[in-house]
């Protein structure tokens, strides 16, 4: 898919994200919109190997949504990739739905592991990378973390472990939108310069504009192709709520559904983009 095609796909998925959260009446639009371009690059930019007809195919690459509250972004991506019908997106958070408030790997095809408790995803991804290496597999493991999530101590336990184990096939992407529920990450409890911190733990670090699809694809391809022993971190500078002007850079839109009027305004802005 060319860059224009990727941008079109990302816009369609933003529409799906705001619609499904509005229909559910709850959910996390801000962090879903900030990371959807990253997911677009991974799944539609030719970065990840996957097969919706055979979600457990042995030679697939793995994706772990460490920031599990961005489930709407993952669901939109998996639906567009063909893991389940797009109509199902409107069942988000409803009783009996496969699309739980946070991803459930026993229900939803394409979800590698259930997530929702922040700080755990990078450890799980590191375990996957270690297991794949034991098998002699060339598959890569991608984990998407929030920057607020990096306040969890376990993230740094995992960072230490992955570097020590030389898990070069592990790629962590940090959705660096600089906001968390209570405000700016640097004001709430400053996790510092995340690129410098991952580098200090022995990771290869790349910085990228998290809304520049061509740059994202290039950075992810480069990280995937790099056979060096160090695990890779990509710090993607993003805007929370990206694409919906009244949500952009607003911590208040972390975990709130738009009402009918706000939905119409959001859709109009996305149509005009």
């Amino acid at each position: 898919m060319d860059t224009q095609g990727l941008e079109r796909r990302a816009r369609e998925m933003r529409v799906d994200i705001v619609k499904m959260i509005a229909e559910a009446g709850s959910g996390h639009p801000g962090g879903s919109l900030s990371c959807i371009d990253i997911l677009t690059a991974l799944y539609f930019g030719g970065v990840m190997a996957y097969d919706p007809a055979d979600p457990k195919r042995a030679d697939r690459d793995r994706f772990v949504l460490a920031k599990g509250h961005a489930a709407p972004a993952l669901y939109a991506t998996l639906a567009h990739a063909g893991f389940f019908p797009r109509e199902e997106l409107m069942t988000l958070r409803k009783l009996g739905s496969r699309l739980q408030g946070h991803p459930d790997s026993n229900l939803c095809p394409g979800v590698e592991v259930s997530t929702g408790s922040l700080g755990q995803g990078l450890s799980i991804a590191a375990g996957m990378a270690a297991g794949l290496r034991l098998d002699g597999s060339a598959s890569r493991v991608f984990a998407l973390l929030g920057d607020g999530e990096c306040q969890e101590g376990q993230v740094w336990e995992a960072a230490m472990f992955a570097a020590h184990q030389k898990l070069g096939h592990l790629v962590a992407i940090i959705d660096n939108n600089e906001l968390q529920i209570d405000g700016c990450i640097h004001d709430v409890c400053d996790p510092g310069d995340l690129a410098a911190r991952f580098a200090a733990f022995g990771w290869d670090v790349r910085l990228v504009d998290g809304h520049d699809l061509a740059a994202l694809v290039a950075a992810l391809q480069e990280a995937k192709a790099d056979d060096g022993a160090a695990p890779k971190a990509i710090v993607a500078r993003t805007v929370k709520g990206k694409g919906v002007p009244f949500m952009e850079d607003q911590a208040g839109w972390h975990g709130k559904a738009p009402n009918a009027e706000e939905l119409a305004e959001a859709l109009a802005a996305l149509e005009a983009a």
């Binding site: 590191a126 375990g127 101590g153």
Partner: peptide, 23 residues
């Protein structure tokens, strides 16, 4: 055998990840 050092939270989730590759 994977020694995580003194980091039990990571230990548990590394095990989770390993199990997801059939171990």
């Amino acid at each position: 055998l994977f020694n995580c050092g003194i980091a039990e939270q990571n230990m548990m989730d590394v095990a989770a990840g390993l199990s997801l590759t059939g171990k």
